[in-house]
Amino acid sequence: MIVSGSVVTPMLQATSIPPAQTGQEPVAFVPKAGGPPDTSSYMIAGYAVTFALYGGYILVMLRRLARARRAS
């Protein structure tokens, strides 16, 4: 489902969880009562894909380079 534009939070406006707030800071967003949503599974999936792609490519390149050296 595509959520409406107002629900989308651009990274431009993203902010970290402040350690302590006095209520006086000019922050754009404050954490929800329950804290941020648990999206760690998406984060892990993204990093796993990145490792697999970069790591796989480097291994393939090293193998092909070793084979090219043996052939010459």
Binding site: S16, I17, P31, P36, P37, S40
Partner: peptide, 29 residues
């Protein structure tokens, strides 16, 4: 350097207040 950056991103950088941990994909994307 990539290993150090990933360790810092995953374990030593705060999560986004609205998006949670998925925002950390920003550091590789």
């Amino acid at each position: 350097a990539c290993g150090a950056a990933v360790v810092r991103a995953l374990f030593f950088t705060p999560a986004d207040a609205m998006l949670g941990d998925v925002q950390k994909l920003f550091y590789v994307h």
